[in-house]
Design a protein around this nucleic acid. Structure first.
Length: 786
DNA sequence: GTAGGGTTAG
């Protein structure tokens, strides 16, 4: 109907504007506004109140406020009320409260609507005091607070975390309606008191109270978050019985519950049968699939949503991106990225998620380009990029970015700190690590949780296991992760007995070990050659703790058996594993074959390994190692050929040492260091001295078929020797030299380092890709097995 | 003109 065709009076407007508000139809509402102006009704207080209300329901606060401010006579409390509740029901508490104050100054008396609106603005611990003052004033004034008001008080207390006060409110209410019961129920759920929520829900049922869609939504959300599938299905059945299941929001919550309980099938069934679906239904089912490892299904559904012409928002895209990054599929990420740009949907959350997704797909360049483009980088943006660098092994870049973040004036939080600490750990950058430890103390971070575990880990990786221990002792409430870090720290440094000690102390403290704890323990056993203990703990893990070993646990045991020269037993063990051996398991066995020069078995294992994981250059190096050590150059060439045809390159060896405030890195035969000349001349002198003492280069560790002299030259240019030499030049006598290497130490360098530690009277600590070696007086803590 | 509910993230 065209209103302009009919004679209108002012009474028509409030109801039509109310409809606009309910439908959130701002366009039509604005048209009506224009019409009201044309008809000269805007001086009518009822019409203006309705207009204010319409604008606020359509989330146009500015429009509402402009109208409100233009009102010449604001004696009508209704005008104030609609503006206040417009603000408070949309989370604009400050605006609502300042308007309330203004209203009091104008001398307008409030009514029960005002009370509800203002209490709604106090649903935040920050405004609780004010809410309580209002509560007190109400009690003192002897006003009879009706059920709307008491409900609003109840919700205020529960949203502020004062569930006890909320419950007292609830129990003291003379009159309760469905909203009261539901508010109490959702109060428990929002405060994560799930057990209380369940027994409260039972109380509702026992008392014979009506439940409605809202009650079901709250309790199902609680059961989902508990992962309580059994009761979840019960309530689902109950919802069907009451015919609530056709409700859109009930359906959405049920989908989420099944997703959180890991029941992907039920989730899909409910989703398929929904009579209508909205954006949230699609987002929930996409996220549900992604969280349960069904990444392709998640992406398929995302495509489905687009095909159906469903509106897409940042949250839905965020879930789809999560699926892409789990699939490590950069081209999917790029597709979605382009889609976002085309649709103009890019916001900060999505920008951060995209950085993260590219990072997960090892597209560091894309991640970094995206990161640099973000205009208002927040702490999440910086941390995403930092941890992306850390995960992909670019620890230096991570640290650099951390300093840039400080310059940009962004305060790091716990998650950022954990990333940065682990960057120091992977660099063995003790000085930087200590600096960051001091920074944490200065900034008043409490040393607990993941921060302290990562510090313990960092000190261990930097060779300062004593600091790890000291820090560990300072922590009052030691959690499983902290104990595991400490077990790992002892193990890395070859102190298996100590690791076992920690393990038993942990059990005494009443903690239950998990897969990772056992991994640390078995690593410790393997680094210290504790064969019997290793066997025993693997058994204990299965029998006592019902933990099925991962391939990584088998790797440790293979390492152990191989160390004891029990190569055949290790081989049989691998063949009898309950799960399919992974490349890492064969890799461990092959390493053992090399150490014990068992070529027959080595050849079998090498073939299995190269078949299983043909894209890892390290495997080819290891295989050619086995052949080279027996001078089987034809086989070596063959392996190298296979590697080349696949376009693989050996990971270049690199060693580094922290001197002053800098990390100095050396590649094989590196001549790029400014002090290069000095380093090489010193290295020659060292080698001559050692040769004089009887050192003979073991050229079998050179994997190339070249002349003996050439082989020697190659060995002498190994990166760890350059780093050690630099350490001898730059650090005072008596001070331990600590270096880190990205690959395992070669056999000849191991001998070389032992001799340097003896004849140059220096403790040398080498961290290789696997463990720590402490060299002192010509002996290494690894017992020549690594 | 008033109160209670669902999805995402380093």
């Amino acid at each position: 109907m065209r209103f302009s065709d009919v004679a209108l009076d002012a009474c028509t407007f409030p109801s039509i504007l109310k409809a606009c508000g309910l439908l959130k139809d701002l366009d039509y509402g604005t048209e009506m506004h224009g019409l009201a102006v044309k008809c000269g009704f805007v001086s009518n207080v009822f019409v203006v109140n309705s207009l204010v209300s319409m604008y606020s329901k359509c989330d146009d606060f500015h429009g509402a406020r402009v109208l409100f401010d233009r009102m010449t006579e604001k004696e009508d409390v209704v005008s104030w009320n609609s503006m206040i509740s417009a603000y408070s029901s949309n989370g604009k508490s400050l605006e609502a409260l300042s308007l309330f104050r203004e209203m009091q100054m104008e001398g307008v008396f409030m009514n029960s609507y005002t009370v509800v609106g203002v209490l709604q603005a106090c649903q935040d611990p920050y405004f609780l005091r004010l809410g309580m003052e209002i509560h007190g004033a109400l009690l003192k004034s002897g006003w009879e607070i009706e059920v709307y008001g008491t409900n609003a008080l109840l919700v205020m207390y529960s949203r502020c975390g004062n569930i006890g006060d909320a419950l007292r409110m609830f129990r003291g209410m003379n009159e309760k309606d469905n909203v009261s019961w539901n508010s109490m129920l959702s109060g428990f759920v929002q405060n994560e008191l799930f057990a209380e929520a369940i027994s409260f829900f039972c109380e509702v049922l026992d008392m014979g109270h009506h439940i409605d869609e809202v009650s079901v939504i709250s309790i199902i959300s609680a059961l989902g978050r508990l992962g309580n599938l059994f009761n979840g299905m019960e309530v689902h059945a109950c919802a069907i019985k009451h015919a609530f299941d056709s409700d859109l929001q009930v359906g959405n919550t049920i989908i989420d519950m099944y997703a959180k309980c890991g029941s992907v099938n039920y989730m899909a069934q409910v989703f398929d049968k929904m009579p209508e679906k909205d954006m949230i239904s699609w987002t929930t089912v996409i996220a549900g699939n992604a969280q349960n490892g069904c990444y392709s299904e998640a992406l398929e559904l995302f495509r489905g949503a687009l095909k159906e012409g469903m509106k897409v928002d940042a949250m839905m895209i965020g879930s789809a991106l999560l699926a892409c990054s789990s699939l490590r599929c950069a081209s999917h990420v790029r597709q979605i990225h382009c889609y976002i740009l085309r649709q103009g949907l890019l916001d900060l959350v999505l920008e951060n998620t995209i950085v993260d997704s590219y990072g997960e797909c090892t597209e560091i360049d894309y991640a970094s380009r995206m990161f640099e483009k973000i205009e208002n980088k927040d702490v999440v943006s910086w941390t995403s990029m930092i941890s992306c660098y850390v995960h992909k092994g670019f620890a230096n870049e991570a640290l650099e970015l951390f300093y840039r973040m400080g310059e940009a004036g962004i305060e790091p939080d716990m998650i950022a700190m954990v990333s940065v600490i682990s960057a120091c750990a992977s660099l063995s950058a003790l000085k930087k690590g200590k600096e960051i430890h001091a920074f944490l103390t200065r900034k008043g971070f409490s040393l607990e949780g993941s921060v302290v575990s990562s510090l313990v880990d960092m000190y261990a990786h930097c060779g300062c296991v004593n600091n790890s221990y000291r820090l560990f002792n300072l922590v009052q409430n030691k959690d499983l992760i902290l104990w595991t870090s400490m077990i790992n720290a002892s193990g890395m440094h070859g102190d298996g007995k100590e690791a076992i000690n920690f393990f038993h102390k942990m059990l005494d403290a009443g903690l239950k070990p998990d897969h990772i704890t056992f991994l640390a323990l078995l690593h410790a056993c393997s680094h210290s050659g504790l064969i019997e203990e290793g066997r025993r703990y693997l058994g204990l893990m299965r029998s006592e703790y019902k933990l099925e070993p991962w391939p990584e646990h088998y790797v440790c045991l293979v390492d152990l058996l191989a160390r004891a020269k029990c190569l055949t037993e290790a081989y049989n063990f691998v063949n009898n594993m309950t799960i399919e051996p992974t490349a890492a398991v064969w890799c461990a066995l092959l390493g053992a074959c090399r150490v014990h020069s068992d070529n027959e078995l080595g050849e079998i294992v090498a073939n299995k390994l190269l078949k299983l994981d043909p894209d890892n250059p390290g495997n080819y190096v290891l295989a050619s190692n086995v052949f080279a050590s027996k001078g089987r150059w034809k086989d070596v060439d063959d392996v190298r050929m296979r590697m080349r045809t696949r376009g693989l390159k050996k990971n270049p060896a690199c060693s580094w040492i922290e001197v002053g405030n800098k990390v100095h890195a050396f590649m094989v035969r590196d001549k790029s260091h400014p002090q290069s000349e000095e380093i090489y001349s010193k290295l020659t002198k060292i080698t001559e001295r050692l040769e004089w003492e009887g050192y003979v280069a073991e050229t079998k560790f050179v994997l190339h078929n070249v002349q003996e002299e050439e082989k020697k030259k190659m060995l002498y240019g190994h990166s760890e020797r350059l780093a050690i030499t630099f350490g001898l030049i730059e650090t005072p006598a008596g001070q331990p030299i600590q270096i880190t290497k990205n690959l395992r130490v070669c056999g000849d360098c191991h001998v070389f380092t032992k001799l340097v530690s003896k004849f140059f009277e220096r403790k040398i600590i080498v961290r290789d890709s696997n463990r720590f070696h402490h060299f002192e007086g010509g002996v290494c803590s690894c017992g020549d097995f690594w």
